[in-house]
Computed example of a mutant assay.
Amino acid sequence: MTLTAPSPSTASVDVPPARRRNWAPYVLILGASLVLLLGMGYPVVWQIITSFQKYGALQQLGGKAPDFVWFANYISIAQNATFWEVTLRSVLFCIVTAAITVVVGVLMALLMTKVPAVVRFILQIALLLAWAMPVIAAMTVWIWLFDRRRGVVNYLLNLIPGVDVGQFNWIGTTPALFFTVAGIIIIWMSVPFVAFSAYAGLTQVSGEVLEASQLDGAGAWQRFRYVMFPVLKPVIAIVLLLNLIWDLRVFAQITLLQDAGPKSTDYDLLGTYIYKTGVAGFDYGAGAAMSIFVLAITIALSWFYVRSLIKEETS
Rank of each mutant, 00 (worst) to 15 (best):
D164T: 11
S197M: 11
P175H: 04
V135D: 11
Q167F: 06
W188N: 09
V135N: 09
I185G: 00
A198Y: 00
I143F: 01
I185A: 03
I184R: 04
I184L: 15
M189G: 09
V165Y: 12
I160C: 14
P175I: 05
A176F: 15
P192R: 05
G151K: 00
L177C: 10
D147Y: 02
R148H: 12
V152T: 07
T173M: 13
L177N: 02
N154D: 05
V141A: 10
L177S: 11
D164C: 13
D164R: 14
I184F: 07
Q167G: 08
N169H: 10
V135T: 11
G151L: 02
L156P: 03
P175D: 05
F193T: 06
F179T: 04
A137Q: 14
P134M: 14
V163C: 14
L202T: 04
V191C: 12
L157A: 05
R148C: 06
A182P: 00
F193G: 09
F168T: 09
W144Q: 10
A182Q: 02
V165S: 08
N158A: 10
W188T: 01
L177M: 15
P175Y: 04
Y199R: 11
I143Y: 05
V135L: 12
V194I: 10
R148D: 06
N154A: 04
V135F: 09
I184S: 03
R148M: 14
V141Y: 08
Y199K: 06
P192C: 12
W142Y: 13
F193I: 03
P192Q: 08
G166L: 13
A137G: 12
W144R: 06
S197P: 05
N158M: 13
N158G: 08
L156I: 13
V141H: 08
F178N: 01
V191S: 04
F196R: 07
I136R: 10
I136Q: 14
V194W: 02
I187M: 02
W142T: 01
F196V: 12
V181E: 02
Y199D: 13
V153H: 00
G183I: 02
A195D: 06
I136T: 12
V141Q: 08
